[in-house]
Amino acid sequence: MATIKGMNLTLKIWRQKDANSKGKIETYKVKDISDHMSFLEMMDVLNEQLISENKEPVAFDHDCREGICGSCSLHINGEPHGPDRGVTTCQLHMRKFNSGDTIYIEPFRAKAFPVIKDLVVDRSAFDRIIQSGGFVSVNTSGNTQDANALPIPKADADKAFDAATCIGCGACVASCKNASAMLFVSAKVSQLSLLPQGQVEREERVLNMVSQMDDEGFGNCTNTGACEVECPKGISLENIARMNREFLKATIHKEE
């Protein structure tokens, strides 16, 4: 086993008591951080330290710590989910940093993602966008249909699956200079519009989801591609183009 390197770090962390308070950056120091730790484990060490000093621990979102739930967030050194590519913050290892580093840790910033406390933001705008997409019609008469009975081209199935890997963490919004949610929304639109099961509500879905996205106060897309770079699941910009097409088709075709 590799030797465990003890890292000493300076952390500049956004502290905010609650949604209505004015927050500010506070400086903390942590010692002997193992390079095997994940970023969130390092945050745990800091919180243990704060608790032992009778101070309020730093609030941050986390759940599975396996990179699949989309709970963890954090804007680390100017990038959502930190400097590594294709990983969430929980999967970001401390070996990506060096002893003596100063690390800035801020919440994801967007008007549609208001800060609840410290580094925790309210991402329920994403839930409302999903809800606005509505249901997928399923045939419930008679026997359950075999999933394989519907032939789907391999390329379409792959693309739908790639889009479906979006965990809704919001890194796309956090990285976008316009705080646009188009990568997220386009992944959700694409996933169903590519599959036969998604055809029935195809037009309503894209119109409603885009309209909800705009109502939530997310910005517009400038095609900078920052979202695609920072996305822990590698969701492609191709999805945004697809959403633009779907929206165009639905707008022209739908009567009401």
Partner: peptide
């Protein structure tokens, strides 16, 4: 619209890490 979509800016941001100068 885009400015209002992020009312509070990051204290530390590295847009050069993920997007080209021309696009920004």
């Amino acid at each position: 619209n885009n400015r209002s979509a992020r009312s509070t800016n990051y204290k530390y941001n590295r847009p050069d890490k993920n997007a080209k100068f021309s696009s920004r």
